[in-house]
Every structure is written in C-alpha cells, then in structure tokens.
C-alpha cells in the first residue's frame, strides 16, 4: 500500500460557514451573522461511515453541503482524494463532483414528479456528458438498490416512501461516487421500511467500498450504521471518535445528555433509567455564548467555561471531546 491510499478520502479542516442575515429593525439596518459552522474538522476514510448527530440547527446540513461545495465555506479546507476543493475552478469541481453525491431527507422533493424514475436516475449521467443509451446502467442501478428493471418506466407517485428513497440512492450511485453525503436519509420513512434502507447502505458499502457521511437525528440508527460519530452543538464538534467509545463512554456532558434522552423501546429499562434533563434551549447561533457554547445548559459549567473555549482533546477511551470537565 502506498502513502496515497492511506490518506483519508475526505478531510475537512477548520471549516467555518457564516450566513449573513440582513434584517432591518426599525430604521437601523443591522447585519447579523449566523455562525452555522465554526471551526469543524474531521476525516473520513475509504469504505467508512462517519455519523453526524446533534441538535437541530447545530450545523449538520451546512457541513454536508459544504463538503460538496454546494455552499461556499467562509473559510477552511476540504480535501477530497488529496485535492483541496475550495481551490478548484467551477469546471474542475464539476469533474470531482462525479465522485461525491448527496441524498436528502425528503425522497419526494428530490425527484421530479414529471420524469420517469429511469430518466431521473440517468440524469446525472447526462449532466456529466456521458453519452449513449443508459438503459442497462439504469437497470443495474435499480438492481443495486433492490428495485426491478421495469420500475424505470414508472413515475415517483407510483412508489412508496421507502422505494422513492431507493430511487434517490440509485440516482446518487449513477456515477460510481466514492463518497455519499446522506442527510437524514431515513427520517421520513416508517420504522418498518427504514430498516431495509439502512441495510441497503451497509450492503452498498460492502460491495462498492464507498464512504458515507451519515447525518441523522436518530442516534440508534447512527450507532448501527456508523464507524465514527461526530456530535455537534451550535456549530461545533463537541465530541468525535469511534462510535463504541462515544456511545459507551460519552465524555462530553452534551453527548451524555443526548444519549440519556433517547427513548429506548423497552418499558422496563425506560422506567428505571436515569435521565439528564437539560434546562432551557439552544442559544442563538447569531450570538453564541462565550467560551464553551454548551455552558448555558451544562450542569458542570464554571467561570472557566465562560472564559476559555475548550479544545478537542483525546480521551483515554479513544475519542476526542471539547470539555474542561469531561466525564
């Protein structure tokens, strides 16, 4: 194995994304800045899955969209296969985009209702200027996601939610990407159907060796599918590492609270379990707290937490966490 193949497929380094909000309050025009993602770094290796979890508005989708350069980061670098995507021209990006795809939550919104499923699936091939009749490839892709070849002639409304999500995945697979960002890919599906789509991701990874960034709010699904997990809070990664370390020995108080809040499908366990109830709400990303961003809801917070922002530090259990008073 040469050095090249040992480098991570994706390396996100010090990613920052601020959104400018132009709000006019009375006569005074004020410019407010949403700090959606603030200095986020992580790596994803070939054939591996990084799960990203965290409160709504913590910046998960913004990270996902930044990876594909669907939005331009305010600063930071995104290395994909050794290339810094933030430095590529539009044309160069188009070529790299073959290798990376994104699948969104709503399988209905992401498919054109007037296009047959086959046309939808082959669209990326056409966009990338790949000529020829794509019928065989479409059939192959449908087969990969567990649908039949004759499904190609049908329209999205003829499919169930789970099937539509499979179509979306087939489309994402069309160009043989090395990386797929999955943004809440099963959240809109019934539990009974979700399981099949989750299995599909596992199978695809085994067969095609691709990497996933799997964004989800369902912590048990992430635990099932991911190798590593990043926990985000208000634009920052507060804890990241091997999923077993993070789930079994959470080090950051927010991770601990999050895990303890997840309802488990077992009445005996649920009724005996100790839960950490977080007080209050997530602060505004326009005006995040000084120091540690979690401190306003943290039961361990001291003066130090307000003054000094904790950095990600490696813990004995293997993961990294950003806390002055880790568990």
């Amino acid at each position: 194995m040469n050095m090249q193949s040992q480098a991570p497929l994706l390396s996100v380094q010090n990613l920052v994304k601020n959104f400018e909000l132009r709000a006019s309050k009375g006569l005074r025009k004020s410019k407010r800045i949403v700090q959606a993602v603030s200095d986020v770094s992580f790596n994803v290796s070939t054939g591996k899955t990084l799960g990203i979890v965290g409160e709504s508005g913590s910046g998960k989708t913004t990270v996902g969209r930044s990876i594909l350069q669907l939005i331009t980061p305010t600063s930071g670098r995104i290395f994909f296969d050794g290339q810094d995507l933030t430095e590529l021209s539009f044309e160069e990006l188009r070529v790299v985009r073959r290798q990376m795809q994104i699948v969104f939550q709503d399988p209905f919104a992401s498919l054109d209702p007037k296009m047959t499923v086959g046309t939808s699936i082959s669209e990326p091939l056409v966009v990338q200027g790949i000529s020829g009749d794509h019928q065989d490839r479409v059939a192959e892709l449908l087969d990969l996601v567990g649908l039949a070849p004759d499904h190609a002639r049908r329209f999205p409304h003829e499919f169930s939610g789970g099937q539509r999500q499979r179509v979306g995945i087939a489309r994402a697979l069309a160009l043989d990407p090395k990386l797929i960002v999955l943004d809440e890919p099963v959240s809109a599906l019934d539990v009974s159907i979700q399981a099949g789509v989750v299995n599909l991701f596992g199978d695809l990874q085994k067969r095609l060796g691709m990497s996933f960034v799997f964004i989800a709010h369902d912590l048990s699904v992430v635990r099932h599918i991911a190798d590593d997990v990043a926990v985000m809070y208000l634009g920052k990664i507060v804890e990241i590492g091997n999923k077993n370390a993070v789930y079994n020995d959470p080090s950051h108080p927010y991770t601990k609270a999050l895990l303890s809040a997840v309802p488990l499908p077992d009445p005996k366990v649920e009724r005996l379990r100790h839960r950490i109830m977080l007080e209050g709400d997530v602060p505004s990303p326009v005006n995040p707290p000084t120091g540690c961003r979690f401190r306003t809801r943290c039961w361990k917070a001291t003066e130090l937490c307000a003054q000094t922002e904790p950095e990600l530090v490696a813990r004995a259990t293997g993961q990294q966490s950003a806390c002055h008073f880790p568990e």
Partner: peptide, 21 residues
C-alpha cells in the same frame, strides 16, 4: 413483532425490515 424487530439494537448486525408496504 415486525415493528419491534426492525429497530436498530445493540449488537444486531443486520436489521430486519418488514417486506412490502
């Protein structure tokens, strides 16, 4: 039963969906 066993659980390698819709 199908609903309960389609949930991800610790130590389960492969989920068990309910086929069909």
């Amino acid at each position: 039963r199908g609903l309960l066993s389609s949930l991800p659980q610790e130590g389960i390698e492969r989920l068990v969906p309910i086929a069909g819709f």
